[in-house]
Amino acid sequence: MAALPRRIIKETQRLMQEPVPGISAVPDDSNARYFHVIVTGPEDSPFEGGLFKLELFLPEDYPMSAPKVRFITKIYHPNIDRLGRICLDILKDKWSPALQIRTVLLSIQALLSAPNPDDPLANDVAELWKVNESEAIRNAKEWTRRYAMGN
């Protein structure tokens, strides 16, 4: 296996030294390209109070290709499906090597603050979000309380 690129080392160091508020990301012991991530639910969102676990993997040609990210903790959100996959343009065709692990995680946190049911990945959730927003928000809060609490 090729040595870890310097850029990944540098990003990891910076994530440790200057952590982003509400986000922690730490490399796996046995695979430095695999990160364990916790994103805290943003204030004033239905996800407030939740601690969401995600996994992030840097592919062989990172930063030329986007990291692969998904939620591990269950979450009720129109742009995140039952498998935890995230609908976010910068993870696909809008990826640029000038983006970093920290910018990706910040964008995901922003997506929790601003769900976008018009660009859905989880269709049933998006549908409810559009026709009955208050019920959808109630569900999201309920899922957060039930699944995303810390010990």
Partner: peptide, 8 residues
Amino acid sequence: QKSRGGII
């Protein structure tokens, strides 16, 4: 979270 059924 796994013990509470919260993991996908």
